[in-house]
Amino acid sequence: MNDNIFILDHPLIQHKITMMRVRSTGTNEFRRLTDEVAILMGYEALRDLPLKNIDIETPLQKCSAPVLAGKKLAIVPILRAGLGMVNGLLSLVPSAKVGHIGLYRDHITHEPHEYYCKLPDSIEERTIVVLDPMLATGGSACTAIDFIKQQGGKHIKFMAIIAAPEGLKKLADAHPDIQIYCGHLDECLNDECYICPGLGDAGDRIFGTI
């Protein structure tokens, strides 16, 4: 497998994803689980954030200690389902800037179409984490990352709670320079390009619009 692909097999991530899959899991519980999985995945995805040392004074003495360096982090959810993962990342890095990319998928062609793109300033200097709970065909993820690169983004990571093999391959082939983090790699896409076994429409389940 590509060295930039990370399937996160932590027991807590796997347990919480299973609870998300259950048909009877309600909106409030689904949101909470999405938030918790995003935190656990973010802990792994952000382990290589750059650091610098600053001088501080503890209650006992002065010392040099590490803090996050540079322009830090940009979190970019793909609307709308990606919004459900934002708070998890912000709980880890509250100073992160948040951009948004709006895409919708044509129900006939399954191709993504852009309707909104707003990124934080100095995007070329930031580590960028693109969020979408589901990596299905890979079309939306590839398009979103194309937009980011067009605006100067260089240091890009992509986080999906569940991925289909087809979408994971498409994204990795189109953008071999980015790191891809997945909570679970599922079996396949069905004829309507939904991930199986999946968990249904993540956006509908997060926002209660089923």
Results as ranks from 00 to 15, higher is better:
3 D>R: 12
203 G>H: 04
149 K>N: 05
174 A>P: 01
180 I>T: 11
158 F>Y: 15
150 Q>G: 00
205 R>T: 03
206 I>F: 09
6 F>I: 14
126 R>A: 04
144 A>N: 09
99 G>L: 08
131 L>H: 05
138 G>P: 07
19 M>H: 13
207 F>C: 06
47 R>M: 09
170 K>C: 02
41 M>E: 02
145 I>S: 10
84 G>C: 06
117 C>S: 15
135 L>D: 02
27 T>M: 13
79 L>E: 05
41 M>D: 01
150 Q>S: 13
15 H>L: 14
145 I>P: 10
174 A>N: 15
94 P>A: 12
165 P>F: 08
184 H>V: 07
93 V>M: 06
142 C>P: 01
175 H>Y: 13
25 T>R: 04
137 T>G: 07
1 M>P: 07
100 H>Q: 14
48 D>A: 11
92 L>V: 04
118 K>H: 13
62 K>W: 02
186 D>E: 13
45 A>G: 01
192 E>L: 14
32 R>G: 09
197 P>L: 03
186 D>C: 09
120 P>Y: 12
9 D>Y: 03
10 H>F: 13
65 A>G: 03
100 H>C: 04
198 G>E: 03
126 R>W: 04
164 A>M: 09
176 P>H: 08
54 I>T: 10
165 P>Y: 09
96 A>C: 09
109 T>C: 06
35 D>I: 01
150 Q>D: 14
49 L>W: 03
141 A>C: 10
75 I>K: 05
124 E>P: 00
86 V>C: 08
127 T>P: 00
112 P>A: 10
42 G>C: 10
2 N>Q: 10
102 G>T: 11
48 D>I: 02
165 P>K: 09
34 T>P: 00
163 A>N: 02
43 Y>F: 14
25 T>N: 04
204 D>N: 13
96 A>Y: 06
75 I>W: 06
120 P>K: 11
201 D>C: 08
207 F>A: 06
166 E>D: 14
208 G>N: 09
141 A>R: 05
157 K>C: 01
144 A>T: 06
81 A>T: 07
87 N>C: 01
89 L>C: 03
176 P>I: 07
65 A>C: 06
93 V>C: 12
191 D>Y: 01
116 Y>T: 06
74 A>M: 10
117 C>T: 15
1 M>V: 11
68 L>I: 14
125 E>K: 15
148 I>A: 05
140 S>A: 15
158 F>N: 02
40 L>E: 14
127 T>H: 15
39 I>K: 15
167 G>N: 09
108 I>W: 01
83 L>D: 07
100 H>M: 14
179 Q>N: 15
2 N>I: 01
5 I>C: 03
